[in-house]
Amino acid sequence: MSLRSPLARVRGLGSAREGSSHWWAQRLTSVALVPLVLWFVFSVAMMAGADYVEFIDWVRSPVVAGLLVLLISVGLLHSSQGMQVVIEDYIHGEFCKVVALFLSQSVHVVLGLTGVLSVLLILFRG
């Protein structure tokens, strides 16, 4: 016999009120990151020893700039969600946990914006 109301059961959101959205987002971002990371590490290895002009020329291709923006945003979302799980698992005091979560997510947002804006700046500065 279930003690949950029919409405709670049909919504299927569980005790955290968010259902499986966090878990599912982690899976989607990891699938997206497989090709993005492979592309990135091989490209950077191929760029070894490149000077400033060569690097800027590489970033300024629309495809590369687009993939970099995707890598930064999807990668930092994945990182943010992963760090959230780590913090929730190991920090048990409610106050410390909330502060750590807030700091972690703020840093991720700032890093993401900084990275994306840097790519756009290189792309549009001409």
């Binding site: 930064i72 900084t114 990275g115 840097s118 790519v119 290189i122």
Partner: peptide, 11 residues
């Protein structure tokens, strides 16, 4: 952090 630092440097 290093990746972002590298891109900021390039910009």
């Amino acid at each position: 952090l290093v990746l972002i630092w590298w891109l900021v440097a390039a910009a």
